[in-house]
Design a protein around this nucleic acid. Structure first.
Lengths: 345, 345
DNA sequence: AGCGATCATGTTAACGATACCATTCTTGGC
DNA sequence: GCCAAGAATGGTATCGTTAACATGATCGCT
């Protein structure tokens, strides 16, 4: 009977003969104790120059890669942050996630990605698994709806940053803007430009719907209403914008103005309008949302609402980092929302 | 410099009075041992109905969230996969990552995101940290260039899937297509349509350049050459496409055909051409790459090379999962590349 | 010169889970 | 009715690292 004493046999991992270098191997090579190696990598200031050099040499020579899983278990700091995003197929969220991840990466954190989709189906499942990773912090893009999931988050005891929020804060850290306010601003802008008939094409998700309500309310205050309204299933696409024109023209005579909940929808609308020989904005004015590249590059260039997704991601990351470092961090950050008037209104 | 003793209490964790429920707590509540709880969650088949029910009740009641970090350390399986992507600001990669993540998520894996950018600067740093997370597998979108980083990867002993590759495989699992072949196919297509003057606008990254070379070679074989060539810094944008027209028109008289390394560049070119009163494709034919939504929705719709980014992501995920489950998985998968002829050529 | 303060390093014991092997309790075949 | 084979469960060691505390060396100051 082969008795698996101590080393290689027993809990052997992957098939190929790997050489898992552990911290003790490095320690032995450098003639120090394990904790000294740990300190060389985490708190080098605590060591003498000579020891530090010796350890780092050994690290390099052996090709030591610290096992961060073990480190996390022991120190109770995983240096990981979970980001839950509805989708990254949408450029707005992608941009936000990109800058969020980059900023955290520079500070030594890794990001674990959770894709929520737009339904609450397996939200609890997702949140639970991800919390099991023991993240030091969390980013929620958009709200978490399932009650069970929210409870879990609240009990997790980690800082949670929420961005693109829709006004029902789960986290203790908000980076965002008022969607209602944005809708109002668009209404004000369009009324100011002299338009008198209005339509809206909106994605059927909670944040877009808030903007819709803001839009409607501001119009109403001045005696206007929404003559045409169309909800489309997320994620928004250019094609869906093109397809919206038909219905729109039936309800809205020439000279109206339409607010689209995404630049993608707006771009589609403009493209289709031109194909039909309409002149934008004379026959149809359009305002998008998001200030995506396509709007800037379109002809005519799209009037839109600019919210800096990258900025929000970076802000959220910075706040989390501050919070995790014990530094004070603001609880609420409002990112400016700006109407960029270009050629379609 | 005062050593920053940030935490006041001992190893008590986060400030707010949390109740970290451990597996032993659940075990006690259910009147079983810890290992039984573990089995209830991981291999429920091994338990009797009655015990299973009892344990799951306790789990729910206590709101137990398994510490996956500890589990990973003990079992040497992290159930995490690292994805290294140049950027997710580009829709192509975003799409790939989206489907990759979704597929893995459904199989119980989490994805750790690494953003590489297009430079090799801190590539080794990034790879090292991420390997330290003990991922079970890895996805490389595009190649890893730093020699040190490649060595690390090779020694990691985990399956590595590489997609969007440029022909210098790091991993042992390839999902992709021939970029050279794609360039050739475009050349063949355009020549077949009767064009005789050619231009190219390409992103300055290795994969796009391979397509360029394929394009050039195929043209050369039939006695043609590239009359206009422009390299633009990644990531590609619509605006950059628009800006390219000026130079292009100087070198390429009306009736030429241009291959763009991205649908974004191609879309910009088409938009600008129409602004200048050119007719597409009569005055200028354009072929893009990537089959993005914008190409489909553009007017005139863009001829392009379709590579299914989502499909590739899903394939890569499936292969990794198979490999990790001990099932056989193909080493090389070639995804079909198809020229979609629409209205711009 | 003595002595507390500071620096540099080491020892020990977790962190929370699972692998391995052992143990008890069933079961069925002859 | 007895024994081998399997089902159900538990005990113990361990995964690789870091926190907490301990120790010895160094140093400046009265």
């Amino acid at each position: 009977m082969p008795s698996n004493d101590h080393s290689d046999a027993g809990r052997s991992g992957k098939p190929p003969g790997r050489a898992p270098v552990r911290i003790t191997d490095v320690a032995a090579a450098a003639g120090v104790s394990a904790i000294t190696v740990s300190r060389a990598l985490n708190t080098p200031d605590l060591l003498s120059k000579a020891t530090l050099r010796r350890v780092l040499t050994a690290v390099k020579q052996l090709g030591y890669v610290p096992n961060l899983t073990a480190g996390a278990l022991s120190s109770r700091r995983s240096r990981m942050v979970v980001a839950i995003v509805p989708t990254i197929a949408s450029p707005m969220y992608a941009e936000t996630l990109q800058s969020f991840t980059s900023t955290l990466s520079a500070a030594g954190y890794n990001v674990v990605l959770g894709l929520g989709g737009f339904d609450d189906r397996n939200e609890e499942q997702l949140v639970t698994t991800l919390l099991g990773r023991q993240p030091d912090g969390m980013l929620l893009v958009g709200a978490v709806h399932s009650a069970a999931a929210r409870r879990r988050l609240a009990q997790a005891g980690i800082p949670i940053a929420e961005i693109w929020g829709d006004g029902s804060p789960d986290g203790d850290l908000q980076v965002g803007f008022s969607h209602v306010g944005a809708g109002e601003a668009v209404a004000t802008h369009l009324m100011g430009r002299g338009y008198e008939r209005f339509g809206i094409i909106s994605s059927d998700d909670s944040r877009a719907l808030e903007r819709l309500e803001g839009f409607r309310a501001a119009l109403g205050r001045r005696g206007h209403d929404i003559a045409f309204q169309r909800l489309v299933a997320p994620p928004s696409t250019i094609m869906e914008g093109r397809r919206s024109l038909d219905g729109l023209l039936r309800e809205l005579p020439r000279g109206g103005a339409v607010f689209c909940s995404s630049d993608l929808l707006a771009a589609g609308l403009v493209i289709e309008a031109r194909v039909r020989g309409l002149e934008v904005p004379r026959d149809l004015a359009v305002c998008g949302f998001g200030d995506l590249e396509i709007g800037r590059a379109l002809e005519p260039a799209l009037t839109t609402v600019s919210v800096d997704g990258a900025e929000m991601g970076q802000m959220a990351a910075r706040c989390l980092i501050a919070r995790l470092s014990g530094d004070p961090a603001p609880q609420h950050i409002t990112v400016p929302v700006e109407i960029i008037q270009r050629a379609t209104s």
